[in-house]
């Protein structure tokens, strides 16, 4: 019998890097949105990229490697958060304190911008992710629905709620003048 399938050449390191480079920052930003601390987000991103590299033989089968990697990142971070909650570890918040100091220095000029970051931190995870993917990473609704494994209508509902909450809290802060 003749084997008609063409053998996929094994991906080299540089080919892998070419595939991964365009979206590695997006993975990191998503991980940071969920885990808050930069170090944890870096660890998570490395973990996801490593998993992707070990699965490189299957990579040609995925229609969209970026979406797949993003879903992996989401699942990885949510698992992290879950295990942290059950282990009553409050690393997120202690790290956040250090990190926000650095961020405030960085944003001395327009520190009201960092309010938005704090407000986003208070959103439920799903709204956080939808807002991140739409307003920061510019994904379209179908892509978001696919990579968050949600219904497209649910994506719009979550997005609308997230945007409205940010607006509400921002207006509150403006009128009370809390910095």
């Amino acid at each position: 019998m003749v084997n008609t399938t063409i053998d996929q050449p094994i991906m080299t390191q540089s080919e892998f890097l070419n595939v991964v480079m365009p979206f590695k920052d997006k993975l990191y930003r998503m991980a940071k949105r969920l885990l808050v601390s930069s170090e944890e987000a870096e660890d998570a991103t490395q973990e996801v990229l490593l998993k992707l590299w070990t699965k490189k033989k299957m990579m040609s089968e995925y229609r969209n490697v970026e979406a797949f990697a993003m879903t992996m990142t989401k699942n990885f971070c949510l698992d992290r958060l879950k295990s942290k909650q059950s282990g009553t570890l409050k690393l997120v918040h202690s790290n956040y304190a250090d990190e926000s100091v650095a961020l405030q220095k960085q944003l001395e000029v327009n520190d009201s911008v960092s309010w938005v970051e704090k407000i986003m931190q208070e959103l439920p995870e799903q709204q956080k992710m939808v807002l991140q993917l739409r307003d920061i990473e510019d994904y379209n609704y179908d892509e978001i629905a696919e990579l968050l494994e949600m219904q497209p209508t649910a994506v719009r509902v979550a997005l609308s709620r997230a945007r409205k909450t940010v607006r509400k809290k921002l207006i509150e802060k403006h009128s009370y003048g809390i910095g």
Binding site: K24, Y28, T45, S112, V113, S114, V116, E117, I136, R167
Partner: peptide
Amino acid sequence: EYSTMFSYFSHAKEERFTKQVPL
């Protein structure tokens, strides 16, 4: 007040993953 929101979004987009890609 809306400009705060939109400038944060474009600012947040600038953040980069600086660690090495592990192989």
